[in-house]
Design a protein around this nucleic acid. Structure first.
Lengths: 334, 334
DNA sequence: CTGAAAGCGCTAACAG
DNA sequence: CTGTTAGCGCTTTCAG
C-alpha cells in the first residue's frame, strides 16, 4: 500500500508539501502541485483514511440505526440517507437493532468514539435514555419517524393528522363502520395514529368500538389471523384503516380469504405508500409518507449539525421538521 | 472525550498496562485489572477506534456494495450480512451504486485504504475490471448473486437450473405457451435464466418464440406496458415466467387489467421469493432464493478471508458457493 | 512557498 | 507483572 511517504520520495518533496498540494489549503507552487498529482496517479496513491481521521478528529462517516432494513419502509429512508451522505462525502454504516436496547447501546458505545461523526436513529422510544444521553453529550444526532420531546433534532410526520385525514376520507365517502389495524401503541407514532382515528370518529359523531381494533402486535403476518378472527366473530366493518401498507396487504388477503371483496365489501387504506402499494391488486389507497425525502432531510440536518459543532463546539438547538403526508387514492377504497 | 491516558492517570498505571488489562492478552495482576475496569467505568472511557485501527491495521468494518437497497432482494441480503458481521464484531458500510462504474470506483478508492477490511459486492459485471483489480491486489472480497470466472470468492445460485426447473414445472402442469420476462441479458444472471428457460423448452420439444420474450428493461414498472403490449398484439401465453417477483407482480396487474385471470387464464411464476410474494393476491408461485442465507454466507466467507489474509499475508484460493433454490408453489400457477 | 518536528490515541516489542 | 519507547500515516504549526 503506497503512502504519503512514497509520494514524497517519488517527487523528492517533503510529506508536508505533498499533503498541502493534495488539499490545496495554503499556497503551493503550481508546478509542484502538478508534480504531486502526477506522482499520485503514477503510484496509485490513496490516503489512509484512518490516519487522516485520527488526525483531524472526524471520519466523515455516519451511522443509520434502524429496527430492520427488512421492514419495507426503511430501504427508501436508507437510500435517501446514503444518497445525501455521499453527496457530502460521507459514508454510512448500517445497523439493524430490532429495537433491542442492548444492541443499540452496544452499537452506540462502539461507534461514538470517533468511528462516526453522527447518528440517524429511527428507533427512539420514550424510555430510550441511552439516546437522550448521546444528545446530552452533544453528539450529533437526528431522529427520524419518531421524535422526542423537542430536545433532539428530528424529521417526522404528523401522524395524528395523517390518520385523521384518512379516516375522515373514509367517513365522507360513506363508510359507517371503520376498523383500525395498529402497531404497538406504546410506540408514540402508533398512539398518534390511533388518536387520529378516534378523533375523526368523534368529530363525525361516530362512536368508538373496541371490537374494531385489530392488533397491536408487531409481526405483520399475525394480522392475517387477527383479521379473520374479527370477521368470523361477525364484526364486519365496511372499511379498515391499517397503520402500514404491509399490514394493509396482509389484511387484504385475509379479507379475500374470508369471502369478502375489496373495495366492494370492505375498503382498505394503508399507510406509508411503499413501492408495492401500487403493485398489489387492487392498488392500495394509502397515506403517503415521503420516506426518501425524510432520509434526505435527516442526513442533511445531521451533516449540518456535524459541521456546526465543528465550528462552535456545541450543537445548534434542536429543530423538529415535519414532512408532508398526503392521501393517495387508488383502488382499494370505494 | 476521555482517553487511555486519562485512565492511566486515574489509576496511576502506565498506558500500556491499562491497554493490556483491557485486552487481557498477556498477564496482568488481577487487582490491577479490577482497578482499571473500575476506572474505565468511572470515567466512562471507550477506546478511540480510529487510533486502534490505525495501529493494528484493520478496522473490523466491511462494505456492502449493491445496486440499490430499494431493490426488494437486497434488504434480506443486507440483513444477513449485517447480522453475521455483528456476530463477529464487524460493522458494515452500505453503498448503493446503481451499478454506475464511476460510483463504484469512487467508493472503492475511498474505502479500500484501511477504512474497511473487505468488500461484499453484488454488482459484478463481465467488464468490472475495477473489481478484478481489487482481488488482484489481494483485497478481501466476495461477490454475491453474480460470480465471475471462479477467480473471486462468491456465493451464488444456479440460475440456469432454477429457471429450468420452474419452466419444466409449468410444462409438466400442461402449459403450452410460456412467456418469459427478463432483465438485461448482458447481466450473466439473466442470461443464465434465459438459457434455463430455453433449455427447458427444448428438452420438452417446445419451440422458442421470440414474441414471447418480455423486456430486458431495467425499470420494473415498464413491464406493465410491455405485458399489455404483448397481450394486445394477440400473443396470449398460458404462463409467464418472470425473472423476479417484482416483475411478476407488475405483470400480474397488467394481466388483470387486460381482462385475464391468474392463474385460470395465465399462470405466473416469479423469482426470488421476497416477503411480499406471500402477500399478493393470488400468492405468488416463485423460485425461492435464500437471500438472507446468501448474505450470511457471504459475510462469513469474507471474514474468513480477512482473517486468513491476516495470518498468511494472502487470500485463500477462491471458492464459489452455490446456495440451493427451490420452487415454492402457491396460487399463481394452476 | 517548503521542510522539520510534534502529535492525534493507541498497541507492541523490549527491558526491567 | 509493569513501564518505556517507538511508531501506525497523516496534518499542521512553526521556522525558514
Amino acid at each position: 500500500m503506497t503512502g504519503l511517504k512514497d509520494v514524497a520520495q517519488y517527487t523528492g518533496l517533503s510529506m508536508s508539501t505533498v499533503s498541502r498540494a493534495l488539499h490545496n489549503k495554503t499556497y503551493v507552487k503550481e508546478a509542484t502541485r502538478k508534480k504531486v498529482l502526477e506522482a499520485v496517479k503514477a503510484l496509485n496513491y490513496s490516503p489512509n483514511v484512518m490516519a487522516q481521521s485520527l488526525k483531524i478528529g472526524r471520519s466523515s462517516t455516519i451511522a443509520l440505526m434502524i429496527p430492520s432494513i427488512q421492514n419495507m419502509i426503511f430501504p427508501d429512508i436508507a437510500r435517501g440517507v446514503e444518497d445525501t451522505a455521499r453527496k457530502y462525502g460521507f459514508m454510512v454504516i448500517l445497523t439493524n437493532t430490532d429495537e433491542h436496547i442492548a444492541i443499540e447501546k452496544d452499537y452506540i458505545s462502539r461507534l461514538k468514539t470517533r468511528l462516526i461523526d453522527g447518528f440517524i436513529i429511527a428507533s427512539m422510544m420514550p424510555h430510550s435514555t441511552h439516546i437522550m444521553k448521546l444528545r446530552n453529550e452533544q453528539f450529533p444526532l437526528v431522529l427520524t419517524l419518531r421524535s422526542y420531546n423537542r430536545k433532539i433534532d428530528a424529521v417526522v410526520i404528523d401522524n395524528k393528522k395523517a390518520a385523521y385525514n384518512a379516516v375522515a376520507y373514509l367517513i365522507e365517502r360513506g363508510h359507517k363502520k371503520i376498523a383500525v389495524a395498529l402497531g404497538d401503541t406504546a410506540v408514540p407514532l402508533y398512539a398518534d395514529r390511533f388518536q387520529g382515528y378516534k378523533d375523526a370518529l368523534h368529530d363525525y359523531g361516530m362512536s368508538f368500538d373496541a371490537a374494531l381494533v385489530i392488533g397491536e402486535n408487531q409481526d405483520v403476518h399475525s394480522f392475517y389471523t387477527l383479521t379473520k378472527t374479527m370477521l368470523n366473530k361477525g364484526d364486519i366493518p365496511d372499511a379498515i384503516f391499517a397503520a402500514s401498507d404491509a399490514r394493509a396487504i396482509v389484511i387484504m388477503r385475509a379479507v379475500y380469504d374470508a369471502g369478502y371483496r375489496v373495495p366492494d365489501d370492505i375498503s382498505i387504506i394503508g399507510f406509508d405508500n411503499v413501492d408495492i402499494a401500487t403493485l398489489v391488486e387492487p392498488p392500495l389507497t394509502t397515506v403517503a409518507q415521503p420516506l426518501y425525502e425524510i432520509g434526505v432531510r435527516a442526513a442533511e440536518r445531521l451533516i449540518y449539525q456535524i459541521q456546526y459543532k465543528e465550528k462552535h463546539g456545541v450543537l445548534e438547538k434542536p429543530e423538529i421538521q415535519v414532512a408532508d403526508t398526503s392521501l393517495v387514492v387508488r383502488k382499494s377504497t370505494r
